[in-house]
């Protein structure tokens, strides 16, 4: 599914350069549930952004479903984000002025068109069918993250990327989110890649990739 080969990422910081990733090579199989751990500044988010086609590597190769995507242009990358990848963010990133339903529909907007029935189905899948017309401002953190998950899965992407999905939630809501994500993985065979600080959550996954200073420190099978 995902094959990273010697990926580096260097950001220009004024006159100096900041090397965030120093040669990462990782393989993730289709249907795997993988956690990425590491201290702040170890390059977790940068790696996830690269996998999510939000950014391009400075050097190295990235094959997604066998296709080299690290040299594609912005338009082609947007197409991959639209059709292949669902994002779940730590800060939810819902549009505050839209209803839960409209936020979920937004997930389909750039992936072939809006289908209200499917959006309702996705909300039902995360247990929020009765909250479809509520705005994010009227919801708890856990509910907002469930809307975000519905938005990510509504277009049936093969890959979902979650950047600390429980980072802003209390432990009970966090546990709910993790159980929704793991059941999505178990029932629909979605490949799921999740950054987390929480070792307990990481141990719900099949594999843990530990990053340190922009390199893979070790991989751990659970």
């Amino acid at each position: 599914m995902i094959k990273l080969r010697d990926i580096t990422k260097v950001y220009p910081m004024g006159k100096r350069e900041l090397t965030v990733l120093r040669g990462i090579s990782v393989d993730i199989e289709k249907g795997e549930l993988v956690a990425i751990m590491g201290p702040s500044g170890s390059g977790k988010s940068t790696m996830l952004n690269l996998i999510g086609c939000l950014d391009k590597p400075t050097s190295g190769n990235y094959y997604l479903e066998g296709k080299e995507v690290s040299r594609l242009n912005g338009r082609e990358l947007a197409g991959i984000r639209a059709n292949k990848i669902g994002f779940v963010f730590q800060t939810f990133n819902l549009l505050p002025r839209l209803s839960a339903l409209a936020n979920v529909e937004l997930g389909m907007r750039y992936a072939g068109g809006v289908d209200r029935a499917k959006a309702l189905e996705a909300l039902e899948r995360v247990g929020l069918a009765d909250r479809a017309n509520h705005r994010p401002t009227e919801m708890s953190g856990g509910e907002m993250q469930r809307v975000a998950i519905a938005r990510a899965l509504v277009k049936n992407p093969p890959l979902i990327l979650a950047d600390e999905p429980t980072g802003n939630l209390d432990s009970r809501s966090g546990a709910e989110i993790i159980s929704i994500l793991t059941s999505l993985h178990a029932e629909q065979g979605i490949t799921l890649l999740m950054i987390t600080h929480d070792a307990n959550i990481a141990h719900h996954c099949q594999r843990i990739i530990h990053l340190m200073d922009g390199q893979v420190e070790r991989e751990e099978q659970v």
Partner: peptide, 16 residues
């Protein structure tokens, strides 16, 4: 800006 970022993450092209 944030809305634009969200839309882009969801697959919006520059043209959209």
């Amino acid at each position: 800006t944030r809305e634009i970022g969200i839309r882009k993450a969801l697959g919006a092209r520059e043209r959209d």
